[in-house]
């Protein structure tokens, strides 16, 4: 706990400094609040909109999480197909890479036009943005599974599906989470952009409304909230990764260095779950 605090202390101090400088600049140069509100004013705006924010946050977060979930499912399944069938991979993979140059911010209005103003088009935008990093990373992970491990499984008579289940999928889990972490970074932003086009609730809508009312202070509130929500989502993904890959986080105590003849007492477990 103490180490954790120390690690982030410098960043915290720096952030406080920036905020103080910002407040000072606004006051010294007498900048108009509709151009750049000071932190104090943003705080006041936050207190004003405190009541409506949770609803917007819930909407945006729902879109982001659902979109990510779909990206995970579709991404993992596509990766399995691409890794399993080389001809398909050669046909689809280049297109997949090119598709990354389609600017989502331009596509979002179209998607909303196609699918209406409900939550669905937003989820779709998040899923589309999140899909690519997961597919690429997971495919890579599946293809990079150690050949010797695959051979080991085959030497016990394992078939294709057994090799996939016991060797390939577990080897690709770290790569999958690496991709998911990138996707999660863009998920909230994707939802907000989709909401700009048209929504009845959400942080994107809140920003549009604040802008048309020239309430820069409220836009800043939204910016801070979006950052916070993004960090929350990122932390959730990180936690999921930890739970899914306990071996990566286990303490690397060289047990055998201490005990070639193991002691019975400490580690004997009641039941092996995995």
């Amino acid at each position: 706990m103490r180490r954790w605090t120390w690690r982030y202390a410098p960043a915290g101090v720096f952030l406080l400094g920036v905020v103080a400088l910002w407040q000072a600049a606004v006051e010294v140069f007498d900048i108009q609040p509709y151009l750049l509100p000071g932190p104090g004013r943003v705080w006041t705006a936050f207190l004003e909109v405190r009541g409506v924010l949770p609803g917007h946050i819930r909407t945006t977060m729902t879109e982001a999480v659902l979109g990510l979930a779909w990206a995970c499912v579709a991404g993992a399944m596509t990766a399995a197909l691409l890794a399993g069938f080389a001809p398909l991979r050669r046909a689809v993979y280049p297109l997949l890479v090119i598709s990354q140059n389609i600017p989502m911010i331009v596509m979002a209005p179209l998607i909303v036009v196609w699918f209406g103003f409900g939550i669905m088009p937003k989820v779709l935008v998040v899923a589309l943005i999140g899909f690519f990093p997961i597919v690429v990373s997971t495919t890579d992970g599946l293809l990079r599974a150690e050949g010797d491990l695959v051979e080991l499984a085959r030497s016990y008579g394992a078939g294709r599906l057994q090799v996939l289940r016991t060797i390939l999928i577990p080897s690709a889990v770290p790569a999958f989470f690496a991709g998911l972490q990138i996707s999660a970074t863009y998920a909230v932003l994707g939802a907000v952009i989709a909401e700009w086009v048209g929504a009845s609730s959400g942080l994107g809508l809140f920003i549009t409304r604040s802008q048309t009312a020239f309430r820069a202070d409220r836009v800043f509130v939204a910016v801070v909230v979006i950052a916070a929500v993004s960090i929350l989502l990122f932390a959730m993904v990180h936690l999921a990764a930890r739970l899914a890959m306990p071996w990566q986080y286990a303490q690397h105590t060289q047990a055998g260095a201490l005990t070639e003849t193991p002691t019975r007492s400490n580690a004997s477990s009641r039941k092996d779950v995995r």
């Binding site: 286990a250 055998g256 070639e260 193991p262 400490n266 477990s269």
Partner: peptide
């Protein structure tokens, strides 16, 4: 096989002999 007490250890936590 001299592994009693280590049933829940990950491979990275075992010595070369183990």
């Amino acid at each position: 096989f001299g592994l009693e007490g280590f049933e829940r250890a990950w491979p990275a936590q075992l010595s070369g002999g183990m």
